[in-house]
């Protein structure tokens, strides 16, 4: 891979797929505490949710690691549908750090589909000017669709959306105000009353 300054340079160590979860050392971008930041939804099932956090993190790692396998990427035929291009090479291919002298060729590249414990993960990258400019995940375990944006994990970027307004019932409101005490007092008391009468 590319230049010594390449941001992915230090996370090019793909995990062996059936390696225990705890062995998936966090890459530089993910601190151990990330695994702990997963407030459990139910007191009685804290472990389950903690596991979900680890699972998300591990999935992210798998993607990042797959991305690191740039040396093994196959150029996708964009017209024939890249998601179908799952190489027959075993996903467990042992990988070594790609040569520093190789530069990345422009184009859209599909990574080998890699199996982690929750399913197949495949990453496609777009290279332009020798640098990764976009990444997506044609294949990833479907039940994580809602909670993860894989392509954003491969290249961490903010996810942009359009502001919407919801009027759902809530227990409490963040940002009720930074300045107006009366507003806050009123809103909070309304919330408290709604609970008292429910």
């Amino acid at each position: 891979m590319p230049t010594p300054n390449d941001p992915y340079d230090d996370i090019v160590t793909p995990p062996v797929p059936d390696e225990p979860l705890s062995e998936l050392a966090a890459p530089s971008a993910a601190r151990p505490s990330e695994l702990e930041l997963n407030p459990s939804r139910h007191n009685g099932s804290k472990r389950r949710h903690a596991a979900k956090g680890s699972r998300s993190a591990a999935l992210g790692l798998a993607v990042v690691s797959t991305l690191g396998m740039a040396a093994y990427l196959h150029q996708a035929s964009q017209s024939s549908g890249s998601a179908a291009t799952i190489p027959s090479a075993p996903a467990t291919t042992s990988t070594k750090k790609p040569s520093e002298t190789k530069s990345m060729a422009d184009g859209v590249w599909n990574g080998d589909a890699s199996t982690n414990r929750w399913g197949l993960v495949q990453v496609a990258i777009t290279v332009s000017g020798g640098k990764i400019t976009a990444a997506s995940a044609p294949l990833y375990p479907s039940d994580d669709n809602r909670s993860l944006s894989i392509n954003r994990i491969a290249i961490p970027k903010l996810v942009q959306s359009t502001l919407t307004a919801q009027n759902a019932n809530v227990n409490s409101v963040s940002g009720a105000t930074s300045t107006s005490e009366s507003y806050q007092t009123s809103l909070q008391s309304a919330i408290d009353q709604s609970h008292a009468s429910s």
């Binding site: 998300s56 944006s149 994990i153 961490p156 996810v159 942009q160 959306s161």
Partner: peptide, 9 residues
């Protein structure tokens, strides 16, 4: 417009 970190969702 809104922006969120990848795992905010």
């Amino acid at each position: 417009l809104t922006w969120e970190t990848p795992w905010f969702n």
